[in-house]
Amino acid sequence: MPLKHVIRSAVGRKLFMAATGIILFGFVVAHLLGNLSIYLGPEGINAYARQLHQLGPILWIFRLGLIGAAALHVLFGITLTLESRRARPVAYIRKKHLRSTLAGRTMIYSGLILATFIVFHLLHFTFRAIGPQIEMLDGGVVNVYRMIVDSFRQVGYALAYVVAMVVLFFHISHGFASLFQTMGMNNEVTLPWMGRMSRIIAVILAAGYVSIPALIFLGLVIK
């Protein structure tokens, strides 16, 4: 089928949403695993950062792939949402939500917040355009450990990251189950526990991410 048909079709774009969703979800998992190396102390996360940089061009391929996926995810998310908004020009005076969740209905908002957060996050840790003074280690590499700890000691940064990760929880709690449905990988056996599993995974991911700024801010575990 020609690509333009797939892109014009809502179901086709939903498939793209699911496929890019898988990529982004994979990134979220991998990124968390990397971040957790902070629990091994300065050596842990700094070694991780060094390893990552040594990947060189491969890292850029990954980065470009991620940016592409994220861009498609946002673009199609916006067009699909706008189409759906147009589908109900007159709102109900009374409306019950029979099965849908707040997380599901606010995907566009959680998505846009996360997109904004990603820009902020890149400015903060990747381009280091904002945030506290950076400490350089020998060999011209950034002391990632210090950069993180110094940032999250400040209430503003800690809070921003915690809030963003709560939003991530919302987005994944609907998105994870949703991508299985959209990819057609769902039936009467999987349907009943898909939603629950999705929420559990979202909680684990969000808790993992939140633990870092929260513990740093509270001065526990990571000093």
């Binding site: 179901v11 589908a87 849908s100």
Partner: peptide, 15 residues
């Protein structure tokens, strides 16, 4: 046809 008729798309709410 669903799109042409002005129906929205499915985002798996199950209402």
């Amino acid at each position: 046809a669903m799109l042409e008729e002005g129906f929205g798309n499915c985002s798996n709410h199950y209402d």
